[in-house]
Amino acid sequence: MEAQPLDGTTLHGLDAYLLRRWDRILEQAAEHLVVVALSVGIAAAIGIAIGALVWNRPFPRSVSLGVAGVLITIPSLALLGLLIPVLGIGWTPTVVSLVLYALLPIVRNTVVGLREVPAAVMESALGMGYTRTQTLLRVQLPMAWPVIITGIRVSTQLIVGIATVAAYVSGPGLGNDIFQGLASLGSINALNRTFVATVCVVVLALLLDALFILIRRSTTPRGIRVRPAA
């Protein structure tokens, strides 16, 4: 990055900035990671449960997918603003809004995955004497798992970016540096601040993506992995 000597709107002195502020950057990155992980965890629990409840009921299924689809289109700034009167500021509205954004890919993939189990497998589960719940837990969910984990991965990617907006409601994460930098453009290190935090968000997203590929590989039952195991 070739910096032109124009104070505050260039990356001038990036190395010095990093050296001085690395602890604060790390702290924000850690917060960012925690808030994303927490939200995705909650969204996965809720989303898989919703998917398991509605996958074979056409009307509830369209309703839940429709609602989750609408939620994801609400501008993140607006949603956070709307949550302030109810939930105040800080972590709570941040996590709540991130959970709402993360739901759609998880619910949708859960529904798709559960429905993709071949009719013959469903019928033999019934014929062996599995109850509905046993069929869901022992047959459908394990078989749908690669699809579900992919939904969780997409959600994670989505909210790693959206989580930066949390800074507007005094939430945690790298959004703080990004927006403080943008708000003080012209002053020394302003662009450094925004730039470094943005790069951190991208790196975090890439690392999480890699992590999910590993998780998917190691948690997919051997019999249904795409590449033959033997």
């Binding site: 009719a119 013959a120 497998v121 033999s124 062996m128 004497g129 047959v139 394990p142």
Partner: peptide, 17 residues
Amino acid sequence: RRRVGYVIQQIGLFPHM
């Protein structure tokens, strides 16, 4: 059903087991 053996044409083995 647990006491009646059942074989279907498409076999329907559980692929993850």
